[in-house]
């Protein structure tokens, strides 16, 4: 069987070019990238915060009786509960609860998605950072303290830089997971890449081209992310 050039051109014409069909994919892709990027920022910042709170609570074992100790203990307890709930429930359900219950008065779907995925990813990133922090040699921490460095100075100069190095592979995975997980945004009617492909199918009545096209776009972005993280890993190891 031979496929003529004309047939390929017609195929692309009918599935992607006609009536600007491709815009469903590119607009959706743009939404997917925005949601991923801002959710990543929230997840990263909140994840580090949660991890530090939990590690500090364990390291310092502060007393409930002092104001700062009370705060650290309380925040650590809240972090634990938060991480348990987020990791123990499906992201889709979290998204629907945010949309239909918690943020019912917020009509910007993009922000609902960003908040949901950001808060979700934070719980996973917190666990990744925590394991990275705990893998730092106790001896190096003692050495820093023995020289007079404070707990916070030791954290910022010795523990955190090494923790980032330790958890970079797991961290890369989490970013990729987050990116792909935004494909459930369609559940709340946000037209991301996946939902864009769905709408396109309702126009052309052909499922394969849009779905494969969107899958290819996801794949290319994941490959790029993998390269970025490999490059980062190479940069910060001194072996």
């Amino acid at each position: 069987m031979t496929v003529s050039l004309q047939a390929i051109v017609d195929f692309i014409q009918n599935n992607f070019i006609k009536d600007d069909y491709w815009k469903y994919l590119t607009n959706g892709f743009s939404i997917t990238l925005q949601v991923t990027f801002f959710a990543f920022l929230i997840g990263f910042a909140l994840g580090i915060f949660l991890a530090i709170i939990r590690v500090a609570c364990k390291d310092l074992s502060p007393s409930w009786k002092t104001p700062s100790g009370f705060l650290i203990n309380l925040l650590s307890k809240i972090s634990n509960i938060y991480i348990t709930i987020i990791r123990g429930t499906p992201t889709t359900v979290q998204l629907l609860i945010m949309f239909n219950v918690i943020l019912i008065n917020l009509h910007n779907l993009k922000i609902v998605a960003i908040l949901t995925f950001g808060l979700n990813s934070a719980a996973y990133m917190a666990e990744i950072f925590r394991s990275g922090i705990q893998a730092v040699s106790a001896g190096e921490i003692e050495a820093a303290r023995s020289l007079g460095l404070s707990y916070m100075q030791t954290m910022s100069k010795i523990v955190m830089p090494q923790a980032f190095r330790n958890c970079l592979p797991a961290f890369g995975n989490e970013v990729i997971t987050l990116f792909k997980e935004t494909s459930i945004s369609g559940f709340i009617g946000l037209v991301d890449l996946t939902r864009g492909a769905g709408i396109l199918i309702s126009k052309t009545f052909r499922a394969a081209p849009p779905y494969f096209a969107s899958a290819l776009i996801y794949l290319i972005v994941v490959l790029i992310l993998e390269q970025i993280f490999h490059a980062l890993e190479r940069r910060i190891t001194h072996d």
């Binding site: 040699s137 190096e140 003692e142 050495a143 100069k157 830089p161 090494q162 001194h238």
Partner: peptide
């Protein structure tokens, strides 16, 4: 164990 800072 010497405990030099391995990131520095």
């Amino acid at each position: 164990q010497f405990n030099l800072f391995s990131n520095l």
